[in-house]
Structures are given as C-alpha cells and as structure tokens.
Write a protein that binds this DNA or RNA. Structure first.
Length: 419
RNA sequence: GCGGGUGUAGCCAAGUGGUUAAGGCAGUGGAUUGUGACUCCACCAGUCGCGGGUUCAAAUCCCGUCAUUCGCCCCA
C-alpha cells in the first residue's frame, strides 16, 4: 500500500515536458542576460532564515521545517532561495570578484502550510538575484527578465503590481502614520488585522476583509512617505518601465511578507489561480547582505513559483512528449538481437529510436509503432536478420522499402532528412 | 492552525441500506501464425482511501483519521 504523503506532488510523465520547457526557456533568457547559475544546499542553519527573512514574519514564525541534526545544530529546509544565495555570496566573497554579480537558481523550497491548489509544502522556485548594484536599471532589468519569461511562455491574464516600500527610515515613519490612522478604527477591523496593528500594521493594507479594505482605502499611502533617495530611485524605475512599454499597476498597498525588502517591491498575479494568485514575487533588498554579516551591498531579485506557473500553462495547452524518430519491431531470436544492435547504432548517430521489447505478434508491435508517433518503423524478421537487411515503413504513407542495414547506417544523413 | 466539499480499477465514472459493485478509456490475448489507425470477440484489473461504530445486512448512515479540493491565514 502506498504510504500517504502530503509534502508535494510527484511530477508525472504527463507534466514533465511542461517543466522542461519552462526551465529551458528560462535558462536561455538568463544566458542572454549573462546570469550565472548558482546551486546552494536545500537546508541551512536556522539562524540564517531567522535573521534574513525576519523573526516576526509568518514564514519564519510558523512555516519552517526545522530539525536538529546529530550535532544538535538547528537546521531548516530552505523556505525561499534568497537567503542561501546571499549566504553563499558572503561566504565565498563573491563581491571580491568585482562589480555586479548576476545569479539565478532553481530548486525545491519548503514551507509547512496547509496544502491547497497552487500551494504545497515542497514547491519549486526559479529565481534571479543581482547583487552589488543600487542602479534603478538593475530593478528594471530583473523585472524585464520576469515579464519576458512569462510572456514567452504565453501566459495571459497577468497583473504586474508595483510599489516602493522605501528604506528603513521611510517605513518607520510610514508605519507610525498608518498606526495613527488605523487606531481609531480598531474595533471595526477584522480580528487578524486588529492583531496585526501592533505586530505588522503594513499587512493590514492587503487584508481581504471587506470592512478592513474600506478602512484601508483611505489610509495614507507609503508613496507620500518616501524620502528623497527612495523617491528618486522609484521614479526612475517607473520612468524606465514606462519607456520600455511594460504595463504595471502602481499599487501602494502592496506589501511583501518577507522583512528584507526595501524600495522596489512587486508581484505578478494571475486571475486564473484562485486564492494563490501570485506567480512571481520580488523586489530590492539593500540591507540583507549586511544583515547577514557581509559588506554593504544593494541587491534586487525575484522568484517564480513553478507549480503555479505550470498550473497556468496546463490550462492553456499541453506539452506532449516528443515522438521518437523511429520505432523498431522485430520477431524471432536472431532478429530481436539484431534489432537491439541496430537501435544502438542508430542512437549513437543521434537518431531517437524506440525499440519494441514485447516479442508479441507483428500486428501488435505495429499498433504500438503507430501510437508512438514515430515517422517510420524498422522491421526485422528472420529473413532480414539472415540477409542483413531491414524493411523501413513510413507510417504516414504506408510506403515500405527494403535496404541493407549497412546502407542504412552508411547514409544517416538522407535518413535524417526524411524524418 | 481554522471552516466547507470530495475520496469506487492506471484514468473517467454509475451506484444513496438488500444476491457475484454497471459502463467507458487504457492494457493484454485473439479474429489477422510477417504489417498500424476502423471493426468484432475474450480477458485483465476494485482492501469501494484507512480504522472503528450502528444494523439481520454498509460503497451507501455515524465517528475518527489520511489524502485531496475551495476558502481563511500566508505566499511562489
């Protein structure tokens, strides 16, 4: 009996081609913009996430998979990718390699939450990080990578929400103003928001409760509390995005759940995902590297959730398995051995060959050849094996010819052209 | 962590207290002992998620549990 598990989903053959397509498309875009792949461990010391993401956040407070190893060190399965990348950046002194580091990563992340559609305990993110640049163009470059990727995959019904959460001082001043505004309405807020008033008031802004939303609608905007630097930075980001024709919604109520964000913050949401609408989330995090013990290093990045992305893609189209070039049918001991050798020789020439191992009647093997989608079928029976020949049957036209195996292998190019 | 829905074969499913739990797709074998898409026949596969309870009798009702799904929370 299969053991039940609620960690994540098994990727079955039917889905895997979609994932491979997404990953290949992303990789190509990253290479064009000269981003280097980085792979970090799937678990780290717990303190890394506590300090990086913030002790007060839900991710750290209640969603981490934390365990003690045999040396009684507290370890945690990574709930997101940025902290580990920044740790590696510091540990290997990547800043010493000069200038800007452009990195991308892809892999499993873990959060202990109630699973639902578009949200599982083990999920996968693909993300980018640019470390060492405070230039607004870095923000824009990173955003372009995300929008380009989603567009090339053909996704529709996306909304790109953009905001600036300022720097630490801006946020402190805004937080006070917000609390001052909300406190008189405290009794009318939903229970969660009343709780958040002291703990994390910014989160009240994107509450889904109707009454809370009505109150939040007239709340002061963080954009009015940005200092000179923050404002200049954000204005440039906005101007360049407009210049590049990127559609966005300026959403002053957008708040991100991780503490490290500064200045630019954004989320790309889909209307086709139900409650788990966010496909891509990111922003600038100028204080994180220093917070984790590195030099002062401005940085910006994002992550895309692959389960959500592929869920959207599966609503649009199915990416099917590639068909083999050839399907080999054979019958009889000598012919079957011959078929294996012929398949191997063809595969070594770069031809994809599906070899029927069933030993069943030719009729059945042809049926499978047909379903495989192969362009042609190679037929080996006792006669062919004895004579060193092979029949090739083109499955669309039904045309069938005989030739020697030596000739077939000697002129792979003409075969390849007919496939 | 909280609230609601669902769980019958690899997949889609009928069945709502009463013999051996329909059907379709897929799969296997055959009609066709060396030639595919159509057709026909046969076969295959089910601890009715799991555990307990009620009952003469449970896939069906009740409780628990696990999974899944829709929301809340939160986020990718």
């Amino acid at each position: 009996m299969p053991l039940p598990q609620r960690v994540g989903q098994d990727l079955k053959v039917a889905d895997i081609h979609t994932w491979q397509w997404v990953e290949a498309t992303a990789r190509e875009l990253f290479q064009r913009a000269v981003y280097q792949e980085i792979r970090t461990p799937t678990f780290e010391q717990t303190a890394l996430f506590e300090r990086g993401i913030g002790e007060a956040t839900d991710v750290v407070g209640k969603e981490m998979y934390t365990f003690l190893d045999k040396g009684d060190r507290s370890c945690t399965l990574r709930p997101e990718g940025t902290a580990g990348v920044v740790r590696a950046y510091i540990q290997h002194s990547l800043q010493a390699q000069g200038g800007v580091q452009r990195l991308w990563y892809c892999g499993p992340m873990f959060r202990y939450e109630r699973p639902q559609k578009g949200r599982q305990r083990q999920f996968h993110q693909i993300g980018v990080e640019v470390l060492g640049s405070a230039d607004p163009r870095a923000d824009v470059e990173v955003i372009l990578l995300a929008t380009d990727l989603l567009q090339r995959l053909g996704l529709k019904n996306l909304t790109f929400n953009l905001n600036s959460v300022g720097d630490r001082d801006d946020r402190q001043r805004y937080r006070e103003a917000l609390v001052n505004y909300l406190t008189p309405f405290k009794a009318d807020l939903d229970a969660d928001s009343q709780d958040r008033l002291s703990r994390n008031p910014l989160r009240i802004l994107d509450s889904k409760d109707e009454k809370t939303q009505a109150i939040a609608a007239d709340a002061p905007s963080i954009l009015d509390y940005l200092g000179e630097n923050s404002k200049r930075h954000f204005d440039r980001v906005l101007a360049q995005l407009s210049d590049l024709g990127i559609d966005f919604v300026l959403n002053p109520r957008l708040v991100r759940g991780l503490d490290y964000y500064t200045h630019t913050a954004f989320e790309i949401q889909s209307s086709d995902l139900g409650a788990q609408a966010t496909v891509c989330g990111g922003g600038r995090y100028d204080g994180l590297v220093q917070e984790l013990g590195g030099p002062v290093t401005p940085a910006v990045g994002w992550a895309i959730g692959l389960e959500r992305l592929t869920l959207l893609l599966s609503q649009l189209q199915t990416v099917s398995a590639p068909s083999p070039d050839l399907y080999v049918v054979s019958r009889g001991e000598a012919a079957e051995a011959n078929a294996l050798k012929l398949a191997q020789a063809l595969r070594q020439q770069g031809i994809s060959v599906d070899l029927d191992l069933s030993g069943s009647a030719f009729g059945k093997q042809f049926k499978r050849a047909d379903r495989s989608g192969a362009a042609a079928c190679l037929i080996l029976g006792d006669d062919e094996a004895a004579q060193g020949t092979v029949q090739i049957k083109w499955l669309q036209s039904g045309e069938q010819t005989s030739l020697t195996q030596a000739d077939l292998l000697a002129d792979i190019e003409s075969l390849r052209q007919k496939l």
